[in-house]
C-alpha cells in the first residue's frame, strides 16, 4: 500500500504540466475576421481570461475595435478578466450580440 502511494505521488508530480490547452471559439464578425485564432491553443498554466486577451492582442489576429466591445465566455458562461483558465476549457470571444437595438 505504502509503495503504491509513493508511486502515485511521484508520477503526478513528474507530469504536472507548466502549460495547458484551451479551445478558442469565435463567432459572428470576429469569426470572419480572425478564423486563424480558432481552435486549440497552448497557454501557460494558471493563465487568466485577461492574460489570454493580452496574448491575442499581442498577436494582432483580431480587430481591436471588435475585441474591445466583446465579452468572453468560459465553458458557456460569461467570464470576467480575472477568471483563471483550466486545462481543457472552451473559451469563446463574443462580439456584441445583435438581436438589434430597436
Amino acid at each position: 500500500m505504502a509503495v503504491y502511494f509513493g508511486v502515485r505521488f511521484t508520477y503526478s508530480y513528474a507530469v504536472r504540466p507548466s502549460t495547458m490547452r484551451v479551445k478558442m471559439r469565435l463567432f459572428g464578425p470576429l469569426k470572419e475576421s480572425g478564423a486563424s485564432a480558432e481552435g486549440w491553443r497552448e497557454l501557460r498554466s494558471g493563465e487568466s481570461v485577461g492574460g489570454l486577451l493580452a496574448v491575442l492582442r499581442g498577436e494582432g489576429a483580431l480587430p481591436e475595435k471588435l475585441l474591445a466591445a466583446s465579452a468572453v465566455a468560459v465553458n458557456q458562461e460569461y467570464a470576467l478578466p480575472a477568471q483563471v483558465l483550466q486545462d481543457g476549457d472552451e473559451v469563446a470571444i463574443l462580439p456584441p450580440v445583435s438581436g438589434g437595438r430597436q
Binding site: 466591445a69 466583446s70 462580439p95
Partner: peptide, 27 residues
C-alpha cells in the same frame, strides 16, 4: 449569444449589436 448579418441590396454587414452590460463586458 446570437448574431445577425444583414444582406442589403448593395452589400452585407454584421449588425452592430448592443454594448454588453457592464458586468459581463469581459474584453
Amino acid at each position: 449569444p446570437i448574431w445577425k448579418k444583414e444582406q442589403f441590396v448593395d452589400g452585407a454587414v454584421w449588425a452592430d449589436g448592443e454594448p454588453f452590460p457592464e458586468e459581463i463586458a469581459g474584453a
